[in-house]
Write a protein that binds this DNA or RNA. Structure first.
Length: 202
DNA sequence: GCTAGGATGCTCT
DNA sequence: GAGCATCCTAGCC
């Protein structure tokens, strides 16, 4: 399954989609600008059954897209200054999502650096807020369809060698669940040493 | 290398 | 009014 991921890729439980997204390429097109980065760290959020999810207490105006059609972006604003981007998963009406936490920059690195303040390549996209800043993703991209031509995700044939799992980061609820997934050994992670590693898979 | 603290405004109670 | 799926800097090893 090469090329742009089809809608059915996202029509599965968030945990499954999260794992499968590792190693895929996120593409951002804005005018003449084309940016690419490999997904090296994600977190699954299981909606109404997950105390760590924004959707835990049912739909609100803010979380409406999470309950909508899979394969769209859920972008939210937090801490008064940062955006975070998720892809919507599960079937329509079920609020699964996968938070994109870190990328390995592949293309458009100088553009990312301009937005991120001339930092080393490992610090351009190593966190959910940084990734959004580097790729210029914000409010306007909330609800965007990943089947369109502005933001999408591709399978370029890269094989994830070793996937690690750990507790999610930054939560006060639902911390015990091992729903953060990452490429072991990648220098582009938001945390080099996961606080509580849970398992590994070849 | 590390930790502590502050920035800043939206969302829901 | 409280809390927040974060980031950066200063200060100190």
């Amino acid at each position: 399954m090469r090329g742009k991921l089809p809608r059915r890729f996202y029509e599965r439980p968030a945990v499954v989609v999260a794992r499968d997204l590792l190693g895929m390429t996120l593409v951002r097109k804005s005018g003449q600008e084309l940016l690419r980065g490999r997904l090296v760290e994600v977190e699954a959020y299981r909606g109404e059954t997950d105390p760590g999810s924004h959707a835990y207490r049912g739909p609100t105006p803010r979380t409406a897209v999470m309950f909508g059609t899979p394969g769209h972006l859920y972008v939210y604003f937090t801490y008064g200054m940062h955006y975070c981007v998720n892809v919507v998963t599960d079937e329509t009406g079920v609020a699964g999502a996968v938070l994109l936490r870190a990328l390995e920059p592949l293309l458009g690195i100088e553009r990312m650096r301009m937005r991120r303040g001339n930092r080393p390549i490992t610090e351009l996209c190593n966190g959910p807020g940084k990734l959004c800043q580097a790729l210029d993703i914000g409010r306007e991209q909330n609800g965007l369809d990943l089947q369109g031509g502005e933001v999408w995700i591709e399978d370029d044939g890269y094989e994830a060698v070793e996937v690690g799992a750990s507790a999610r980061i930054g939560l006060s609820q639902g911390r015990e669940l091992p729903l953060r997934f990452f490429l072991v050994g990648s220098p582009y992670l938001s945390r080099r040493k996961p606080s509580t590693p849970v398992n590994h898979q070849p």
